[in-house]
């Protein structure tokens, strides 16, 4: 049973359409959900949580059909979003007691352990916390439930590097439980690259690419070529971006292989270097390519899928 399964999910708004053909998170996996602002990340996560109802399509979370069975599903989900706030005039302890009164299997000692690890005082009011501490407190309320699935919508946004490190480390610790799955949306590709098993790119409401991290990172390359004046770049779907300056040609390719290298050399070129790309570079190239396809489909549609 997959932790999350979205099939042919559609949600239409006046100025935005979400169309998720297939989004699947296997159990025990950490998926980084990456996309630019307005791509549809939050809407997708809200549909997964049952807070927004899809117009059509099937969403299953931990074997429960959403939104119909959201009550059953949410017993095993920890959710934190960037726009989620705890009660400002109440203490962290108030929130933990509140959750304890709901979750029968609440583990007090784990709650205390998390408080220590996050350096949070249970008697402190939420309104007096710094932004980093508030995020930690919100994450604490999700972690302490010991859920089977964690859904995070931009949890590290606005955090300083030290606070981010603590949170990422805690996420990695939580991941040690092999049965726990995490869907983690973020602008911060460094965080995603650090903790994810698989990566899903979304843009303009559509999944651009979904793959395991190693395959993903391995497939994308920057190829530097020295070309003749008469060189014409082959029309290959794997070529996402190209920059030419005199005899220097730099190509960003999404599906690098030896046969692709041969195809590039054939019209009269020498490969001077092949570099791996960071997730951030892949993200930017993917989004730019996707935007180019939207702007001018017949000419630029070289296929953005890795």
């Amino acid at each position: 049973m997959d932790a999350i399964s979205c099939k042919d999910v559609k949600k239409n708004y006046p100025l935005f359409d979400l169309d998720l053909t297939d989004l699947t998170l296997p159990p025990g996996e950490v998926m980084g959900f990456v996309g630019p602002n307005g791509a549809g990340k939050s809407t997708t996560l809200r549909i997964i949580m049952g807070l927004v109802h899809q117009d059509s399509g099937r969403v299953e979370v931990l074997g429960n059909e959403m939104p119909r069975q959201q009550r059953a599903a949410k017993w095993d989900i920890g959710f934190v979003s960037e726009d989620m706030r705890l009660y400002g005039h109440r203490t962290i302890g108030f929130h933990l007691e509140f959750l304890k009164s709901i979750y029968p299997g609440w583990d007090d000692s784990y709650g205390r352990e998390l408080l220590t690890r996050f350096e949070l005082n249970p008697d402190q009011k939420v309104k007096g916390l710094s932004h980093g501490q508030r995020v930690k407190a919100a994450l604490l309320t999700a972690f302490a439930r010991k859920p089977k699935l964690l859904v995070f919508d931009e949890p590290t946004t606005g955090l300083d590097p030290v606070a981010r490190k603590v949170i990422i480390e805690e996420m990695m610790r939580v991941m040690q439980d092999e049965d726990r799955s995490i869907l983690f949306s973020s602008h911060n590709t460094l965080d995603v690259e650090q903790i994810s098993d698989s990566i899903c790119f979304i843009n303009h409401g559509r999944i651009v690419s979904c793959q395991d991290k190693e395959t993903f990172l391995d497939a994308w390359r920057r190829v530097r070529l020295v070309v003749e004046d008469t060189y014409t770049t082959p029309d290959l779907s794997a070529i996402i971006d190209e920059h030419r300056a005199g005899h220097q040609l730099v190509l960003t390719v999404s599906n690098y292989s030896e046969s692709l290298a041969q195809a590039l050399k054939k019209p009269g070129a020498t490969i001077s270097d092949v570099e791996r790309l960071t997730l951030e570079e892949i993200f930017i190239a993917s989004v730019e390519a996707s935007q180019a396809v939207d702007r001018n489909p017949p000419v630029q549609a070289r296929g953005v899928a890795a």
């Binding site: 959201q70 009550r71 920890g78």
Partner: peptide, 17 residues
């Protein structure tokens, strides 16, 4: 207004609850 609703709705409840 204080954005406490996402926290509440992350609990095992429906809109009806």
């Amino acid at each position: 207004r204080e954005q406490n609703l996402p926290f509440i709705m992350s609990l095992p409840i429906t809109i009806a609850d």
